[in-house]
């Protein structure tokens, strides 16, 4: 609670919540809050950085933009949507968070997320670890060869890259090919046993998209379009995001 009364300074039409409402379907219900607090009572981020979902929304509704646009709590909310799930008015607080993130100057956003996004923009892999397509291809082929020999029951197992017309387009978190390649294999085995017709893409094979977490619209769209364009070009029917 504030010790002194808060004097509200509405600047009609220019406050943050109005801008976000204009972007969301049905305004994201942002002005329907009953202040019940169900969001905050069930939010694991409540009290981090002296903030909670209800408080954040109230600040926004009161036009106290400075309070929310300077709060680093927007990087501690995981946008998990539990607050929306329990909200009687289905208010889309995570979208408010997303747009608050986007209002930060790009260079001031958390370095780890920023760096992972920039890595993804380096080449067509779209990997947060910056791994180029040829390195991914080398690891996949090398590991596959090794396991076909070591475990002869899987001598016909495949891990195709750019297989034209495959049913499933499957992407892959970068951590396996880059840091623990043996962990790729159990998934391949399961796909082999069930007779799945699948492929990775040489472009957009990486499943993670830190540009989205960075709230960098142009960049996350580029990452997403790179991977979906590859799936479409290969004629795959189903895009399976393993992230």
């Amino acid at each position: 609670m504030s010790e002194t009364a808060i004097k509200l300074d509405y600047k009609k039409g220019s406050i943050f919540i109005d801008k976000v409402q204009a972007l969301l379907p049905d305004g994201g219900n942002l002005n329907l809050c009953l202040t019940c607090g169900a969001c905050s009572s069930g939010c694991p981020a409540t009290e981090l950085s002296n903030m909670d979902p209800r408080k954040f929304l109230r600040y926004a509704a009161f036009g106290m933009d400075e309070e929310i646009l300077k709060s680093d709590w927007v990087w501690m909310c995981t946008m998990c949507q539990r607050c929306v799930y329990v909200c009687p008015m289905k208010i889309d607080i995570p979208q408010l968070i997303y747009h608050a993130r986007a209002s930060w100057p790009r260079e001031d956003r958390p370095k780890g997320i920023l760096g992972s996004c920039d890595m993804a923009l380096r080449n067509d892999s779209c990997s947060a670890m910056g791994t180029p397509p040829e390195d991914f291809q080398f690891v996949v082929e090398d590991v596959l060869e090794e396991y076909r020999e070591a475990q002869p029951e899987f001598k016909d197992m495949e891990a195709p890259i750019d297989k034209q017309g495959a049913e499933l387009f499957i992407n892959q978190n970068s951590r396996e090919p880059v840091t623990e390649p043996d962990e790729l294999v159990p998934l391949w085995k399961i796909l082999h046993i069930v007779g799945a017709d699948w492929t990775y893409g040489s472009k957009g094979w990486a499943g993670e998209n830190y540009c989205m977490f960075l709230a960098d619209d142009e960049s996350w769209e580029k990452v997403t379009r790179t991977t979906t364009a590859q799936a479409e070009q290969l004629g795959c029917k189903t895009f399976l995001n393993t992230e």
């Binding site: 990087w75 501690m76 998990c80 958390p110 992972s116 830190y210 977490f213």
Partner: peptide
Amino acid sequence: GGGGGFLQSGY
């Protein structure tokens, strides 16, 4: 707590 980029955010 691993979602939304939290793992890489530095907090």
